[in-house]
């Protein structure tokens, strides 16, 4: 529709929109996160919802205790191997369209606890992540920023074509494999369709001994 005509009509009290805009407008402004905290980062997540930072301004204060009613999973904290299957199951239980914010160093890569035998080195080994927020813990402002990024991302999605959300693409999986507890580790240790070891450049640090602490 012609922008000029649209403006003209709106001055007369007639609002026009497209289905896509309406759909995205609704989705961006009422993101309901899952009420689910894992570790220290969850405290900052709670602080974000409280008076000073007030996440309600973004239409996202309705934390739902049940995954069936949530659109957004904020993975706030360290995902341990014991917890990982449950996180994946919760994600599978959420209705589409759904999004994931990986909050904090731990959820991204294991963070300070990377050497831990029971720590999953990043939740993106098992579920797709939309926004990563670095920090240990990220400040509430960082979470708000991630929120606005997510809103932008949702707003850019279309109902058809290349940029349609995952659930409108028949080829994309709607469920992800839930790892089992093994004798020494999770089985499988990652979802190979989702996560591949990144190609990094290895520089020879040589005989640098100052590197160890």
């Amino acid at each position: 529709m012609d922008e000029k005509l649209k403006n003209e009509l709106s001055k007369q009290g007639i609002f026009t929109t497209t289905l896509q805009n309406l759909y995205n407008w609704g989705r961006t402004n009422s993101i309901w996160p899952l009420n689910f905290g894992l570790a220290c980062c969850a405290i900052e997540m709670i602080a974000t919802t409280m008076a000073r930072y007030d996440m309600a301004r973004f239409g996202a204060e309705v934390f739902r205790p049940s995954p069936r009613q949530a659109d957004l999973m904020i993975v706030a904290g360290t995902v341990t191997k014991k917890m990982a299957p449950l996180v994946v199951r919760l994600y599978n239980q959420m209705p589409e369209p759904k999004y994931v914010i990986s909050m904090g160093a731990c959820a991204i890569s294991g963070g300070p606890f990377k050497q831990g035998y029971n720590v999953l080195k990043g939740i993106d080994r098992f579920i797709p992540v939309d926004i990563y927020i670095p920090g240990c813990p990220p400040r509430p402002e960082a979470l708000l920023d991630a929120f606005m990024e997510l809103q932008k991302k949702i707003d850019e999605q279309t109902l058809t074509g290349e940029k349609r959300p995952r659930h409108l693409n028949a080829g994309e999986p709607s469920e992800f494999v839930v790892p089992r507890y093994g004798a020494h580790d999770l089985e499988p240790t990652k979802n190979p369709n989702l996560w591949k070891a990144p190609l990094v450049q290895i520089s020879q640090a040589g005989t640098d001994e100052s590197g160890s602490h």
Partner: peptide, 21 residues
Amino acid sequence: YVDPDDYEYEPTAHDEVLRRA
């Protein structure tokens, strides 16, 4: 105890980490 070998690619690789990387 030998923990599962599932962390890697430290950019500041040296010694043992380099070998793993």
